[in-house]
Design a protein around this nucleic acid. Structure first.
Length: 656
RNA sequence: GGCGGUGUAGCUCAGUUGGCUAGAGCAAACGGUUCAUACCCGUUAGGUCGGUGGUUCAAGUCCACUCGCCGCUACCA
């Protein structure tokens, strides 16, 4: 009666565009865990939803000529439709535009401000609109946003800050005392070494540069920035309130696990716990940063045109096959890959051959030899006991693996039992037994054991492939799949009838299927989505592709203004062991360039040298000193040599 | 540059606190079988366990150095 509670969440999906299969993976993964925990008797609450505020959305909406709310309504609808299509069994779908959520965010913000964790200050830096992030000069990549490569604009605004450093020591102690808090382990190290040890910066938690967000209640010009808005969904969704938290909140919080992408681990393992500490609430038991699903060798991204969508895949392969693929393909800590070819290969060998055929041949034999009536189990032989023991062990392994969130390993254990069962058929050769009336009892025992294995496989599979599990249950005669019965070999009732045998997964012809997919995608997306078509060359000849990508036209090269420059002076930059501040004469002009060659050249060796510089590189500040270009040097294995001119030539000369 | 991870059969990966002839799945070859979705079962991998040098009776498994990838981060032009 007293079920242990289990609260599990996904990250909320950002509603700037329809989620691709990589985003969808997270929901499927979380769903599998949630379903499994329910199956074994936990009182599960599974939360997912959408993150709907921010400047990017505001701009997208403006571009589309609609209000931000209208915009996010559409995308949130798409998100939810895909989650539903994939059979995500969430208990609640929260949207950060929900009234209740907004109220809680405002209350939290006020509370943190009143108690002094948040103070008002000023933020200045280079701002990237697309990424909604500020960068320091030194973080920029070639003067552009280091994340997306777009232009940034210098921006200064009044803002509220959260004093993170106040909680740093407490968080550090918590992480040390709870080794399971951050998973996988290597991620924990990254967080501790890169952020906690060096010391936390105060976090900017409001914006004035856009309006699409939760207004700060006591300072309406400000909008609550993503951290406090989005992260608090985990508690607002279940009824947190600083004054009077709901019964549901008291029951479920703290979360047992937050399932998130590895890219947002920092927010969930540093900022979020600190926010909770400031609120005086307990921290989540665990944060799991799952790896990414890559398209071939590449990160999936709309801009590179290699996106796959869950609905398109489901249309081609069926929902369960897609669920199976992403769940089984993702190792615990390393990125997984997806291509049409690999899906087809796994589909055929595992779903159609190993699993589907096992069910089909077994049920067919029961029909053929026993008129569809499940025979009774008789005396057991060694082969039987070995099989039964494997089945029992499989169930235990699945539970253990799921406890560790090793979903792919759990699935592998189940399929391993399916393979063992196929082997059992070979060992017992029912078609031989069937020819001998004296062996009828033995034949019945063999088929009974097989049906039991299939029942157990089906029940274990329920969390991963719910539709397939239901089909298996139907074909094995609607046998109960409750967890008690799963743990007991022999729970199946003899004398009842099996269902009609029907293949669970039809085998696919790779060539034909690829052509079908290409046609379907072409019909749906037309010419604009050429790159989304399955392309064997793409996955199998990455080299050729790389070479193509690195080829530039003469026009690209012409964009660079390369000049001969003469070094007038070189001095070390204070506080840096590798930077020089150089003065260069370029024609009639003197340029200041900061260059990281101090370990390779003495200052006096540089003066008077001709070097080659990029004269039209966007200036940046390095170590607080403006650098108006860069000089070229060849580098290999730690040694470095400046590019210079073969014969004397006046500085300012163009290099091409 | 710092920190962390990783490098094992053609491919994807397992390999506990060091100890049998280093394993699994897929692919391939050969053989068997026919209940079944041309499916299933068996046999077959002469793998320098990235490299070098150590510790040890014994090392993918520990230590040092080294090379290649990947991640996070930075004073990387």
């Amino acid at each position: 009666m007293n079920k242990p509670k289990y609260y599990i969440t996904t990250a909320i999906a950002y509603t700037s565009r329809k989620p691709h299969i990589g985003n969808t993976y997270e929901v499927v993964l979380t769903d599998a865990i949630a379903r499994f925990k329910r199956k074994i008797g936990c009182d599960v609450f599974f939360l997912t939803g959408t993150d709907e505020h921010g400047q990017k959305i505001q701009l997208s909406a403006e571009a589309a000529g609609i209000t931000p709310k209208a915009y996010v309504d559409v995308v949130a609808g798409e998100v939810r439709a895909i989650w539903d299509l994939m059979n995500a069994s969430y208990d609640k779908f929260i949207r950060t535009t929900d009234e209740a959520h907004i109220k809680v965010v405002q209350k939290i913000f006020k509370k943190l401000y009143d108690q002094g964790d948040i103070y008002k200050g000023e933020y200045s830096g280079q701002y990237c609109v697309a990424c909604e992030a500020f960068f320091t000069e030194t973080q920029l990549a070639g003067g552009k946003c280091p994340d997306c490569g777009r232009d940034v604009t210098p921006t200064k605004e009044e803002a509220y800050f959260f004093q993170m450093s106040n909680y740093q020591d407490r968080l550090m102690k918590h992480i040390e005392a709870h080794p399971e808090f951050i998973r996988p382990e290597s991620r924990k190290n990254e967080m501790v070494n890169n952020f906690l040890k060096p010391g936390l910066q105060d976090l900017c938690v409001s914006r004035t540069s856009f309006t699409w967000g939760v207004p700060v209640a006591f300072d309406p010009g400000h909008v609550v920035y993503v951290w406090i808005d989005a992260l608090t969904n985990y508690i607002s969704a279940i009824g947190y309130d600083p004054d009077e938290p709901s019964a549901r909140y008291k029951k479920y919080w703290p979360a047992d696990v937050h399932i998130i992408g590895k890219d947002i681990l920092r927010f969930h393992t540093i900022y979020w716990p600190i926010i909770l500490m400031a609120l005086g609430e307990p921290l989540p038991e665990q944060v799991f940063g799952h790896p990414w699903l890559l398209f071939g060798a590449e990160k999936m991204s709309k801009s590179t045109g290699n996106v796959m969508y869950a609905d398109d895949l489901a249309e081609q392969f069926g929902v369960d096959a897609v669920r199976y693929y992403v769940l089984s393909e993702m190792p615990f800590a390393a990125d997984g890959t997806i291509t049409y070819q690999t899906i087809i290969a796994r589909y055929n060998s595992e779903l159609a051959n190993t699993l589907g055929n096992l069910v089909n041949r077994t049920v067919a034999m029961v029909c053929k030899y026993f008129d569809g009536v499940i025979p009774a189990q008789g005396e057991l032989q060694d082969v039987d006991l070995d099989l039964i023991q494997t089945a029992g062990q499989t169930v235990k392994t699945v539970v253990e693996k799921m406890d560790e969130l090793r979903v792919a390993d759990a699935l592998e254990a189940i399929f391993s039992l399916a393979r063992r069962s196929n082997k059992y058929i070979d060992e017992t050769a029912p078609w031989v037994l069937a020819k001998d009336e004296a062996q009828r009892g033995r034949l019945g025992t063999v088929l009974y054991n097989l049906l039991e294995c299939i029942r157990i496989i089906g029940a274990c599979l329920e969390a991963f492939m719910p539709e397939t599990a239901a089909k298996i249950a139907r074909q094995t005669g609607g046998a109960s799949t409750d967890w008690d019965g799963v743990q007991r070999f022999g729970a199946l009732q003899a004398g009842t009838r099996v269902g009609e045998p029907a293949p669970l997964f039809a085998r696919l012809d790779e060539e034909k299927k690829l052509a079908e997919i290409a046609a379907a995608l072409d019909a749906k997306y037309g010419g604009e989505a050429k790159a989304e078509k399955p392309d064997a060359n793409r996955a199998e000849q990455p080299k050729a592709e790389e070479e193509q990508q690195t080829l530039v036209s003469i026009d690209d090269f012409a964009k660079l203004d390369l000049r001969v420059a003469n070094v007038l002076s070189a001095e070390r930059v204070a506080g840096s062991d590798k930077l020089y501040k150089l003065s260069l004469r370029v024609g009639g002009e003197v340029r200041q360039v900061v260059s990281g060659i101090a370990k390779h050249y003495a200052p006096e060796a540089l003066v008077g040298k001709n070097v080659v510089m990029i004269a039209n590189l966007k200036p940046v500040r390095l170590r607080g000193i403006e650098s108006q270009g860069m000089i070229l040097a060849a580098e290999l294995g730690g040694s470095l040599s400046l590019v210079t001119t073969d014969e004397e030539i006046a500085d300012g000369a163009k290099v091409r």
